[in-house]
Every structure is written in structure tokens, then in C-alpha cells.
């Protein structure tokens, strides 16, 4: 199962911290991050790219976005 990080409703920079923690701790090469603002979406995508992760898909979902990131 892919790890899901629920960062909805959290202030800056917590969505990025949670994403980086999941990247660091997780065994998965793929993650799903849920955010509720465009700022968080951009920040999470930027942080994922800085860790060598690709953004696989960004889909609007329930008042926010579902961001799928993965590494080879």
C-alpha cells in the first residue's frame, strides 16, 4: 500500500515537513500527499523534486489536491 500523507488544513511549512519525513522514513518509493491549498501543492511538489522525486499526478480532490510522487 502506498503511504498517504494527510497535510490538509496545516499551515506552512508543515505539509513540506510531513512529506520530507515520509520520504526519509518510508520504505516506499511512492507517496500520496493530500493538501488543501495551492501554496501547499506548489511547496510539496518543489520539496519532492528537491529529493529526486517525480510528480506522477496531481488531481483535484475534495476541496484540495491529491499529489502522487514517486522515485525510480
Amino acid at each position: 500500500m502506498t503511504t498517504t500523507v494527510d497535510a490538509r488544513g496545516l499551515s506552512c511549512p508543515q505539509p513540506v515537513i510531513l512529506t520530507l519525513d515520509a520520504i526519509k522514513n518510508g520504505k516506499d518509493k511512492a507517496l500520496v500527499v493530500l493538501v488543501d491549498t495551492d501554496t501547499s501543492k506548489e511547496n510539496v511538489m518543489r520539496a519532492a523534486a528537491s529529493q529526486g522525486y517525480r510528480v506522477e499526478a496531481v488531481a483535484p480532490e475534495a476541496n484540495g489536491y491529491r499529489i502522487a510522487i514517486a522515485k525510480d
Binding site: 490538509r8 488544513g9 496545516l10 499551515s11 511549512p13 508543515q14 515537513i17 488543501d36 476541496n63
Partner: peptide, 13 residues
């Protein structure tokens, strides 16, 4: 503080 889990909690729509 942020590194140690500081949070003001989630907002609601």
C-alpha cells in the same frame, strides 16, 4: 519547534 512537531492544528473549511 517545527522540527519537533510543533503545530497549531488543522483548519476547517
Amino acid at each position: 519547534f517545527l522540527k519537533n512537531g510543533y503545530t497549531l492544528g488543522r483548519t476547517q473549511t
